[in-house]
């Protein structure tokens, strides 16, 4: 579904992503693992169109989307949940969700139905729907960002470090939810530092190090390989 070939991304003179190739098939949950600074978030932002590739190619459903703008990518069906957990802090929970459905704004009834669906998925959001998003806890904000992404009715969900900085019980909830989402048939690309958790839900995995993909394979293979921690430590 997503096909990335020989991707290069630069910040000025620094090559953050070097010659990365990666693919995600329909209905799959693929995870990208790696230490801080491995280029995972850069990869996600580039797919979402927020960063420009310096070289290589990204296709989605057979269409070349390498140079597409962020607003185009959502239209094509790719929803991004950034690591920075970008809720709009001054907007209420409901306003955040409405904005997630920006593309479908003329379909009022459909948006209302979607909104009910995500509130069922995340009952906490229903409780806090008229609260400003900035006042939510970290876990709730993470739920909101995911819920908001779902409001655009995506084919592919890009999840960047959803467990970052959350309490262990909340992390468990988030992964439980990812499992549920996968069951609905949506395609997911998941970036994580919490490799153990990610590999439990993923079908396949890529490991990145200093901007390059160093290992790839099925989730079981990667989980079984003994040098995983070595890769993390940069060994």
């Amino acid at each position: 579904m997503i096909e990335i070939t020989n991707l290069d991304v630069r910040y000025g003179a620094i090559r953050a992503i070097k010659d990365v190739s990666l693919n995600v098939q329909q209905g799959e949950l693929v995870t990208v693992l790696g230490a801080n600074g491995a280029g995972k978030s850069t990869l996600m932002l580039t797919i979402a169109g927020a960063l420009k590739a310096a070289g290589g190619k990204i296709t989605f459903d057979g269409r070349d989307v390498t140079a597409a703008t962020p607003e185009k990518m959502v239209r094509y069906g790719i929803a991004m949940v950034p690591e920075t957990r970008d809720v709009f802090p001054d907007l209420t929970v409901v306003e955040n969700l409405r904005l997630g459905a920006y593309l479908h704004r003329s379909d009022k009834a459909g948006v209302m139905a979607d909104m009910e669906k995500v509130k069922d998925l995340f009952p906490r959001l229903r409780e806090r729907e008229i609260q400003a998003a900035g006042t939510l806890s970290g876990g709730e904000q993470q739920m909101l960002v995911i819920a908001r992404a779902l409001m655009s009715r995506p084919k592919v969900l890009l999840l960047d470090e959803p467990s970052l900085g959350l309490a262990p019980t909340v992390v468990d909830q988030i992964f439980e939810m990812i499992r549920e989402l996968k069951a609905t048939g949506i395609t997911i690309l998941l970036v994580e530092q919490n490799a153990t958790k990610a590999l439990q839900v993923a079908d396949r995995a890529y490991v990145m190090q200093l901007g390059e993909v160093v290992v790839q394979g099925s989730a079981e293979e990667i989980a079984g390989s003994s040098d995983l921690s070595a890769l993390y430590l940069g060994g």
Partner: peptide
């Protein structure tokens, strides 16, 4: 209002 706080994120929602 959303764009005023985080323009890139607003664009990633299709705005």
């Amino acid at each position: 209002r959303a764009a005023a706080t985080n323009f890139t994120m607003a664009r990633m929602l299709g705005v």
